[in-house]
Nucleic acid binder design. Structure first.
Length: 435
RNA sequence: GUGGAUGUAGCUCAGCUGGUCAGAGCACCAGGCUGUGGACCUGGGGGUCAUGGGUUCGAGUCCCAUCAUCCACCCCA
């Protein structure tokens, strides 16, 4: 126990963490270009926030939250998703009083108590955006385009965008009733779950994978046919904008999102070859959420993507990412005097802006060379009694094997000279700790 | 929460029907003469065989439980 991490969590080690840093970099650039600014909210919130926003009857709230009492006897939950907290922060900090829309993004760990499997963990990471304050269908399209843009920047192929409209509080109940009637007539073929869903949430039946239910769903009324005219106009506009932007999509009338707060636009991004958890991102409009949280009637739309799944998709597609540069130079000492000298020297190099290191294992000169080779350092500075006496070191190019003696006064300059143009990135592929 | 598979050195795995079965490759460390890496050679350290019970003269090897990992269901990112 002492040496095992909690189930469904992971250590991201050097060699792997560079991929995360790269992904985060791409995301931050993307957000900047789309006019989103970062928001950092707490990792835990009052449980009530999630119950009210995500929905009490959802799986997330019913069985997946990490909930506990703090020492003040308050019920606290680790955040299972990002939207609730952003909406809360929007209200608490009165961001609705400023210019709208407010475009925010977040990036960080989320927590759900679930049985881990490929692409699903108890602590996982999400990137998400939320745009609050606008009803404009163009914003719906922009959010989807932005999601697709991210995946394409990452080099992912065969990514599909599925879009649907869930209607609004005006038309959804009508549709829901029509669905109920439809399925009541054939509840004999429905699975046990779907018979429950019939009353609680008949939309879900459309999403069921059981054969009987799929059969029963054939010819079921579609949401799209039941939309009220404002919702229909909105949906048409969204699709129109997607076409204008050249974003390919599939209208999927069976698409239902698991969180209660969605209305109108709902979408999901699916990647093949990610295993059973093929959905790498999803989002939609949540026009009633801010008000439901006790704020003014402010609309919103957002999107979230699971970073583990994105990384998994990238890995399965053989996408390599550029790796950051390692050390510029490694100091090798041939004797005890030089060893002492190298401690000072390495620090001087660092103060000049170079990445430098030396041996701390009492290794022989040969072993130090070997170590430097393993680190993949391009340059090694070797010094011993002779060089020290002359106030110089030997600079060895580890690629060519060419080496020459340079005076200490020129070391920084020489190292910098040889480093430039050599830092072109190599792909990260190993899973093990590297330099 | 349900189902299936798996659990032997840091990593990838051998170990047949229980009796030299505690191994290999890679990794790590040290050498291959006196101050130099990546190839090669030699040697070395390292495992309570997931944990705890049980069966047996004897168990990595059979049985049970627990834990963990992986995969799938439910659901979701």
């Amino acid at each position: 126990m002492l040496t095992t991490r909690p189930r469904g969590t992971s250590d991201i080690l050097p060699g792997e963490v560079e991929k995360w840093q790269y992904l985060e970099q791409v995301i931050r650039n993307l957000c900047r270009e789309y006019g989103y600014r970062e928001i950092r909210t707490p990792i835990f919130e009052h449980t009530e926030l999630f119950e009210r926003s995500v929905g009490e009857a959802t799986d997330i709230v019913e069985k997946e939250m990490y909930t506990f009492k703090d020492r003040g006897n308050r019920s606290i939950s680790l955040r299972p998703e990002g939207t609730a907290a952003v909406v809360r922060a929007y209200l608490e900090n009165r961001l609705y009083a400023g210019p709208q829309p407010v475009k925010l993004y977040y990036l960080g760990p989320m927590f759900r108590y679930d049985r881990p499997q490929a692409g699903r963990y108890r602590q996982f990471h999400q990137f998400g955006v939320e745009a609050l304050g606008s009803h404009d269908p163009a914003l719906d399209a922009e959010v989807m385009a932005m999601a697709m843009d991210l995946y394409s920047r990452l080099g992912l192929k065969e990514i599909e965008l599925h879009v649907n409209s869930l209607g609004c509080p005006q038309c959804r109940p009508v549709f829901r009733e029509r669905l109920r009637e439809f399925f009541r007539e054939r509840d004999g073929v429905l699975c046990r779950h779907c018979r429950d869903r019939l009353e609680r949430n008949p939309l879900r039946i459309l999403d069921c994978k059981e054969e009987g239910c799929r059969g029963a769903a054939q010819g079921a009324p579609t949401v799209l046919g039941s939309l009220c005219s404002p919702c229909e106009d909105h949906f048409r506009a969204v699709l129109g904008y997607l076409e204008q932007l050249g974003v390919p999509y599939t209208v999927n009338p069976c698409l239902v999102r698991g969180l209660d707060y969605y209305n109108r636009t709902a979408f999901e991004v699916v990647a093949r070859d990610v295993g059973a958890q093929s959905s790498i991102g999803g989002g939609g409009r949540y026009d009633g959420l801010v008000e439901a949280c006790g704020g003014p009637d402010v609309p919103g739309i957002g999107f979230a993507s699971g970073l583990e799944r994105v990384l998994l998709a990238m890995e399965r597609q053989g996408i390599s990412v550029p790796s950051p540069p390692g050390l510029d130079v490694f100091l090798v000492a041939a004797d005890e005097a030089a060893r002492e000298q190298s401690l000072v020297l390495v620090q001087q190099l660092r103060k000049s802006g170079l990445a430098a290191d030396r041996d701390y294992m009492g290794r022989s000169l040969k072993a130090q060379m070997k170590f430097a080779g393993k680190l993949g350092v391009g340059l090694v500075a070797i010094c011993g009694a002779g060089e020290l006496a002359r106030g110089a070191v030997i600079l060895r190019d580890m690629r060519t094997g060419i080496q020459e003696e340079v005076p200490l006064s020129k070391l920084v300059e020489e190292v910098k000279l040889r480093c430039t143009g050599r830092k072109e990135s190599a792909p990260v592929n190993g899973n093990h700790a590297g330099a």
